[in-house]
Nucleic acid binder design. Sequence first.
DNA 1: TTAATTTGTAACAAAATTGTAACATTTGAA
DNA 2: TTCAAATGTTACAATTTTGTTACAAATTAA
Lengths: 226, 226
Amino acid sequence: MNGKIFIIEDEPSIIQLVQHNLEKNGFIVSSSLNGNDGLKELKKFQPDLLLLDWMLPDLSGIEICKNIRKDNSFKNLPVIMLTAKGEEEDKIKGLDSGVDDYLTKPFSFNELMARIKAVLRRSNPNTVSDNLKFDDLMLDRIEKRVFRDDQEIKLGPTEFRLLEFFLTNPKRVYSRDQILESVWPNNVNVESRTIDVHIRRLRQSVNLKNKKELIRTVRSSGYSLI
Amino acid sequence: MNGKIFIIEDEPSIIQLVQHNLEKNGFIVSSSLNGNDGLKELKKFQPDLLLLDWMLPDLSGIEICKNIRKDNSFKNLPVIMLTAKGEEEDKIKGLDSGVDDYLTKPFSFNELMARIKAVLRRSNPNTVSDNLKFDDLMLDRIEKRVFRDDQEIKLGPTEFRLLEFFLTNPKRVYSRDQILESVWPNNVNVESRTIDVHIRRLRQSVNLKNKKELIRTVRSSGYSLI
DNA sequence: TTAATTTGTAACAAAATTGTAACATTTGAA
DNA sequence: TTCAAATGTTACAATTTTGTTACAAATTAA
C-alpha cells in the first residue's frame, strides 16, 4: 500500500494515532489541525486521499469538502469523513457534498484501513487523469486542458507541448536546443529564436493578472519554470 | 440504469436521501415507513429490488424478508438489508432469511449504488441496462437510443457508435486514429478526415438549440466531449 | 424491385497556428 | 558609461488544420 494521505482533524491524539499507523503501513501522511490551514497545505501536499473531521474549530468538514470539489485539481480526490457519534442525521448534507465514505468515531484502525483501501480501489483509475502540477498551475494531459487556480487557460498545440515539457521537470533550466529536440517533431528545422516567440506566447497565456511570472529566462542558458 | 426500487425504512431522512439520489440515477422509487404498510405497497409496486431496514417499529427486517420469500411472486426479489452499527453479529441470521447483501449504516451513497448494481446484475442481468450519461445526455446501449434532457435524438449507426465511444471516457481527448480504431470495424480503411465529417453530423444531431456545444475540437489532437 | 438512408471522399471555405524577419529593449562585461 | 550580445515584442504571410457542403456509391428498408 502506498500513496499520500492528508488528515484534517483537530484532535491531536487522533492525528498522532492515525498518522503513526498509516505511516507504518507505507503511506506518506501529512496533517492540519484546522480547516483553513488544511486547505492551504492540501495544495502543497497533493494527497491521494483526504481524511476529514466533521467538526473543526473554523470550517466544518462539509464546507471544506465543497471547497475542495470546486478546485479542478481536487475534483476526484477521495474523501473519508470522520464523524462523532450522534452527528448521524447530518449525514444527508455530507453525502451531497461529495464525501466518498464515513467513519464514526470511535473507530478501530483496522476499520479505517479497510475503508481507505476500499475508497482508493474504487477511485476509478480511468477517471484519475494524470495531471502535471506546479504551483497553482495544472495541466491535464488526458483532457488536454490547463488551469491556473481553476481558471482555464487556452493554449495552442505548441504552447501546450512546451508547457507540458517544462512541467515534467519544473525549475530545471532547458537550453533552446533541448527544447527544440523535445518539443518539436524530429527532423524539423526551426530557428532557435522561434522558441523565444513561443515562450512569449506561452507567457502571455499563462501569466494571468495578479499572478506571478511562471517562466524564468536564464540569460545565455535558456528557460525554466520558477 | 433503470428499474424499480422499494424502500422500507423508518428514518425519513434516510428515505429522503436515498430516494432522491436513486431517482437522480434513473430509478423509480417508492417507500414505506413501516413493515406492514411496506408489505402491502410492495405488491402494488412490483419492484426489482428491495432496500430493507433491519429495525422497524412493527416487524423486523428479518420477518419481512421471510414473509416475502413465501410469496411466489417475490421469491427471487433481491433484498439489500440496511443494518445499524452494532447489529453486525446478527448478520448470520439475516443471511439465512434470504438477504442478498448488507450495508451498515452509515453508508455512502456510492457504496449503496455499487451494491445495488451488483445485486441487480446478479439477479436479473437483462433488466439492468447500462446507460452512459454525461451532462444532460443519456445513451441507452440496450435500446440504442439517445436522449438529451428527455428529448430523444435520432442518430445513424456510426454517429451512435461514435457518441458511445466518447461517452465511455467523456472529457478525454481522442485522436482521429484512436477514434478510427475503436469506432470503425477492424481493417477498414477510411480517411482520417472522414471522422471530421461524422463529427459534424453528430454535432448537428446532438446540439439541440439552447444547448451548449458538447463536442470539443482540440486542434492537432482530436475531439472530446466537454 | 424501388425508395430512403447511410457512408466515404473530394473540394472548397474558414479558422487557427506557425515561423520568420525586423525592430525594440534589456543585460552584463569591459 | 558604452556597446555588443541576448532576449522581448510585433506584425504578417505561409502553412496547417478543421468546418462545411455536395455528391455518388453502398447499404438498408419498404
